[in-house]
Design a protein around this nucleic acid. Structure first.
Lengths: 230, 230
DNA sequence: GATGATTTGTACGTATGTATA
DNA sequence: ATATACATACGTACAAATCAT
């Protein structure tokens, strides 16, 4: 989708703004419902309004901000329903990638996935949520790649990225690490065994279970309702 | 994704340009590889370069054009591999929607789908490809909706839309209409029977078969290679 | 309900980076 | 390899629309 803009050297102010604004939103600096004033943002980042406008439009298509014609841009505040649908869509996409991986992964890919999974047990025994989270991203990315379908992988990665803010402390919940690792195990086993249906089911179950940790959801939702001052 | 921009009243020049340019590209007026000069486009559509720029960015995120920083925009020319991946992604998404429809469609939705399918047999017996194509879009859209997942439906519809130019005369191939209708029948039967696995398989098979009619692919691909004058 | 302030949408000029001779 | 031509990226000015009073 944005290969040429994000990779390469992409030395345009707009590209930098897309990244910086995205980070600011996902780090919670800008909260859902906050107005994104073009002038203020231009001042803050030391550029003119033009790149700010373009960056806002980019972010709108990725769903992070909402732009209403002539009414300005705000940080997108997802409703609980919409959020649940996004999690559901991500689960389905991941399950599909898992199924395709079971069918089409090369022997090397299967072995690497297995090895990576086994290496993650260290984070479980040492109870290292940060390390596990990083390795977890790699784990899922390997499965996206194993589907051998660029657009599908991009969509899945995009959804995961977009839902990141709502999954923050997911691995800090007591008992989550070993459970997640066990669920990963079921996925890996199915993929290595080339069992498409099992791979699909295992991944769907894994990602769906993660949905339950919505700790930021309530806060975000309440905030978005409260900030409707109009 | 673009609800606020496309619906509402959306009276901005940029929005109109997105539609008009999109139409021009998909109708074949602009061919893959063609340069999209901001000045020329601004002249042609009677606006300044600013809305042209913004429209090009919008289209870039939907994959219709490719913008390289400081090197201009061109109509995206898909490679054969990429195109195959897009078709594959669409097949998987549609199959997923079909599976979810089998699980979660309301009785009313199931009956309406069945009724719509049965009404399509008229186009088959009368050999009306245009009519069938229109009804076919409705058929697939009903299944997107039946998945009860907005983001998933948007992604599937977006892919279908984007691949439209490469599927032009699909129903003009002799024997396609009855075959498509029969494949639809299998999908409907599985959905009505709430058989998730069968619904998935039937839709995957249906959409994958359609991939075979790539009549525009060869032309587009050849053109894109030929126009690489550099 | 009308008026004013603020903000977005649009136009256009300038500068920088890319591709050419 | 250097220079020239050109298109884009950015900045700024103005117009139109929204909202707040």
């Amino acid at each position: 989708m944005s290969e040429a803009q994000l990779s390469d050297l992409a030395h345009t102010r707009t590209d930098r703004l897309v990244r910086d604004l995205s980070d600011a939103i996902m780090s919670g600096e800008f909260e859902p419902g906050d107005r994104l004033d073009e002038h203020s943002l231009a001042d803050r980042f030391g550029v003119s309004r033009t790149p700010v406008r373009e960056a806002l439009r980019q972010l709108a298509t990725s769903g992070l901000v909402e732009v209403r014609p002539r009414r300005g841009a705000v940080v997108a505040s997802l409703t609980a329903d919409r959020l649940a649908e996004l999690f559901g869509a991500m689960a389905e996409l991941e399950a599909t990638c898992s199924r395709l991986s079971a069918i089409g992964m090369s022997p090397v890919e299967r072995r690497r996935l297995e090895a990576h999974h086994e290496s993650m047990s260290a984070f479980v025994t040492e109870n290292d949520p940060e390390g596990f989270a990083a390795a977890n991203l790699t784990f899922h990315t390997m499965i996206y790649a194993g589907a051998h379908n660029g657009p599908l992988a991009e969509m899945a990665a995009g959804l995961r990225q977009r839902l990141l803010p709502y999954r923050r402390a997911q691995f800090h919940t007591p008992g989550r690490l070993p459970r997640s690792h066990a669920e990963h195990g079921a996925v890996v086993e199915a993929i290595v065994a080339a069992d498409a249906a099992a791979a699909h089911a295992a991944m769907l179950r894994h990602v769906s279970l993660v949905e339950d940790s919505f700790e930021r959801l309530a806060a975000a939702f309440t905030r978005s309702k409260a900030s409707k001052t109009a």
